[in-house]
């Protein structure tokens, strides 16, 4: 069986987010990592590989330096890697991104496509379901568990207050939660092998059945008008009240800020 995992290189937001003076994200100042949900998706695929011998291909769209996350995936145990990179693909919103990735996926054999639930930089959670839509595949999002049974996948889908267990015939697409598993470490030998391997690089010309008008910044229905840092919290306010007044004061403040 063939599994394709779509992964994204994102800035590590753990240590805080840094901005350029013009309000855009200062990517150079932040460490680039594999998006955590995608890493869990990759681990899920590798566990299926451990059990069934499935072939795992990882695919990313990004700048040439996104090659690093593909090497990381290979060092964890993925078999093949594809980098989709082209100047005309830059500035894409989720529509243009999913169109591009679907165009690349049409070149590959897949039974199961796994993406992360959402990327920690854009935080939209839209690309996975949109890819499924482009390819005409069923989609199960928010997977907290993925199992393969014959020609189907059984997925535990997380809701706010419950799980749904769904069984879907392959081919299909699943979006993974980072809570799904604890991704394995790379191995030192795996890293050395990963840098000896060939990463397939595709550009615009390699995308199948896509229209230029759906790609890159030009093909994006949405445009980011403005980005800004969070407004810094003002200084705290100190008040001296007796216990009963304090309660009334706090509840009043909470209501004012819509906390309750």
């Amino acid at each position: 069986m063939n599994i394709v995992v779509c992964i994204k290189q994102v800035p590590d937001t753990k240590g805080g987010v840094k901005f350029n003076p013009d309000g855009t994200l200062d990517r150079a100042a932040m460490l680039a990592i594999m998006n955590p949900d995608d890493k869990a998706g990759l681990e899920a695929a590798l566990r299926i590989k451990d059990e069934t011998g499935a072939k795992v291909t990882v695919l990313t769209m990004g700048l040439p330096k996104a090659d690093a996350v593909l090497r990381e995936a290979l060092a964890m145990g993925a078999d093949e890697a594809v980098l989709v990179t082209d100047r005309v693909l830059g500035g894409a919103d989720t529509w243009a991104t999913s169109t591009t990735i679907a165009g690349a996926l049409r070149n590959l054999d897949y039974d199961l496509i796994i993406t992360g639930r959402q990327a920690i930089d854009g935080d939209t959670a839209q690309v996975g379901p949109q890819i499924a839509e482009h390819l005409g595949l069923p989609v199960i999002s928010y997977a907290a568990d993925i199992k393969v049974e014959g020609d189907s996948v059984v997925v535990k889908r997380q809701y706010e207050d419950r799980y749904h267990e769904l069984k879907v015939k392959m081919p299909c697409l699943v979006t993974a939660l980072s809570e799904l598993n604890e991704p394995r470490y790379m191995t030192p030998g795996g890293i050395f092998d990963a840098f000896d391997k060939e990463v397939t690089v595709w550009g615009r010309a390699d995308l199948k059945d896509v229209d230029d008008s759906d790609l890159g910044l030009k093909g994006s229905p949405t445009k980011i008008a403005k980005a800004s840092d969070k407004v810094a919290k003002g200084a705290g306010e100190k008040v001296n009240l007796d216990p009963a007044e304090s309660v009334a004061y706090l509840i009043g403040k909470f209501k004012e800020k819509h906390i309750i």
């Binding site: 394995r184 470490y185 790379m186 191995t187 030192p188 030998g189 795996g190 890293i191 050395f192």
Partner: peptide, 22 residues
């Protein structure tokens, strides 16, 4: 499990096939 006990050892002897620097 992650191969740290045989980093500079060639793969044919069960190691990771890396170098002394690694």
């Amino acid at each position: 499990k992650y191969g740290f006990m045989g980093i500079p050892v060639p793969k044919e002897y069960g190691g990771q096939g890396c170098d002394p620097l690694t």
